[in-house]
Design a binder for these strands. Structure first.
Lengths: 352, 352
DNA sequence: AGACGTCGTGAGAGCGCTCTCGGTGAGAGC
DNA sequence: GCTCTCACCGAGAGCGCTCTCACGACGTCT
């Protein structure tokens, strides 16, 4: 069964060993049904005896496909590896890709020249299509790839939403839901620490917050909005500003759990109790949320599902290139924990 | 300059547009010096005008090389993405790979069948060689790949150390150094929380601890050794056991920073002050070490350098396949912080 | 002036595979 | 007994590239 050679085995040799032509051997290996059981068995035995593995380059050249897709992540590697988002996304992608025997290739361009490399890499036919995530807004790459006829799927909301396949999480609805929950818990002065305003997720979560307030009939107040940057320290800083500007606030919606850690610290330092004085809801449902003091309520995104959906969209696009771009919107779920427990004094049932 | 077509451009078309033969065009693109300036210019202009990108499959088939290497990580994706080791390793690898215009392909086999996939992937010529890290001991993959004539470099200490190229960090020396530092700080009853005994790093760090004690003339005491598992909770548990078995201990050498977090928690809960009552030194110099209470002394490994060295070894092996396996041992550095400050009462200068 | 590089070039083979096309033999249908 | 499927198979083209080889055009040396 095992091979003990150092030299490459070709299909020709397998065919010879099996006593058939190269064409028949190829048919067996591509599981073409038009082969007799005898021939099939002979080829399979010869292949396994010789330790044959089809040469990827030859196959790719003949078929025009590579059976691989690229996941292009526009994020510094340090962040990439710290962020629990990616293992979940990759698991989702893997679910559908491995079932179709396709490889996932991770590319993390760090610089502008890296991005050019990625374009060349993809255009060179290394992969059959590209999945793009955390794409800076108005980045030229998707249009470039599309102009080369390469299937593309974007994770998140792209700038020109209609031109490309994309799957997004409904950040607006998720955030509005979080605010509604705070309102239902008897909170009335609800602040927010936003994400970066230059990324769609940041924008959408802010919009959701505003819509949530409006839906509850609460007044908009710009002093209740403070910009964060998706970092822990940024969250702490924003929270300190909020406490100065609006000391009477009784709840905060934070656009990411990482920032929420900073928020909790700042509240603790300021002597505010959570959730008695101030309720906090985060976003992302980071695994650490459950371990925080107090355990953090958070909006959970269906990341695995997002991965699965992205992979499906891409495979469809590879298979039928002329299909118009599609958009998939996934819904979130609010994980309620102690950090947003209702105020004890005031009755809960006022709203919702 | 920009292209505006959806169809693939071939070298033939570039050659035609430039008014030269395919051979000359190819020479330009492979930067063969034997081309006249005129022809070179013409080809370059035609290529950029048509947005030409060489087809990888064609090139690979003709050259037998793919200009890519695989980084095979035997680790669950969740751990992979949580571990600060990998971004540092990848940065180091990238340093030398990108300078040679080679791609890094990340493979993270999760199951036994995934490992088979990896073997096939590599054997199919997708990559010119493989870098293997956190390889379970006695895993068959390196031998399998080697028998196929595929260059391999292992990160860490492989089971059959002499058969394969590998680069390792001197865990023994690093651990011994940490113990020496504790001794120099006036500590005399030094415990250790080990890593997993089934991985080389765990074994070596324990050995370094033992050698450090012996070098200082301190007695070996098995009750001062408690097995951890490289997790935070495992560290806390091990520390609690140690406190029961040897309440008089005045220092702990912990085989990883993550476990050290648990150790610090357990010590805090037990009412021991760090470093006044118990000094602690960790391993890995995780970025969080500096943010702990108190800031954690830790053994820093030259991970980036390890990556660079691995890449160099692999490229050498790709270039000259018959070279015998080489071994590179890298040294560590001890980052001294407050968690291992010397005891105030006893004078420091007793040893070293 | 002839012999001998050197330089730039094109023709063409060949890398390992898939896939179309045409052919062969066995069985079904008349 | 003849044709007509139909299942199976082999020959061979061709995917896009690199690289060897041979060749013409110069320059140089004797």
């Amino acid at each position: 069964m095992k091979d003990f050679h150092g030299t490459k085995v070709t299909l020709e040799e397998v065919a010879q060993a099996a006593g058939v032509s190269r064409a028949t051997a190829s048919r067996v290996l591509t599981s073409d049904p038009r082969v007799s059981p005898d021939a099939r068995r002979a080829v399979e035995r010869a292949a396994s005896k010789l330790g044959y593995v089809p040469n990827q380059a030859g196959r790719a050249l003949a078929t025009g496909r590579s059976d691989a897709v690229a996941l292009v992540v526009f994020e510094p590697t340090t962040l990439l590896f710290g962020d629990p988002f990616f293992p979940r996304l990759i698991r989702g992608l893997g679910d559908v890709l491995t079932s179709r025997d396709m490889q996932l290739i991770l590319l993390a361009p760090q610089t502008a020249s890296d991005a050019d490399r990625v374009e060349r890499y993809v255009a060179a036919g290394h992969v059959d299509g590209a999945l793009l995530v955390s794409l800076p807004s108005a980045h030229p790459l998707p249009a470039r790839l599309a102009s080369r006829g390469i299937p593309v799927v974007i994770g998140g909301r792209p700038t020109e939403a209609d031109r490309f396949n994309h799957v997004d999480v409904d950040n607006v609805a998720g955030s509005a839901r979080a605010v509604a929950h705070l309102v239902a818990g008897g909170r009335r002065t609800i602040a927010t620490v936003t994400g970066r305003k230059d990324v769609p997720a940041g924008q959408d979560r802010l919009r959701g917050y505003q819509e949530g307030l409006k839906a509850a009939g609460l007044p908009a107040d710009d002093a209740l909005i403070e910009a964060g940057d998706f970092t822990r320290d940024g969250g702490a800083r924003a929270m300190r500003f909020l406490l100065v500007k609006r000391p009477q606030l009784d709840a905060v919606f934070v656009a990411s759990d990482l920032m929420a850690v900073g928020v909790l610290e700042a509240l603790h330092q300021a002597g505010r109790r959570v959730p008695e004085d101030v309720a906090v809801v985060g976003y992302d449902d980071d695994p650490m949320a459950i371990g925080l003091q107090p355990p953090l309520s958070s909006v959970r995104q269906p990341i695995e599902e997002m991965g699965r959906e992205m992979a499906r969209l891409l495979l469809d696009a590879v298979h039928s290139p002329d299909r118009p771009p599609r958009k998939v919107l996934l819904t979130t779920r609010l994980e309620v924990r102690f950090s947003s427990a209702p105020v004890a004094s005031k009755p809960t049932g006022e709203a919702v």
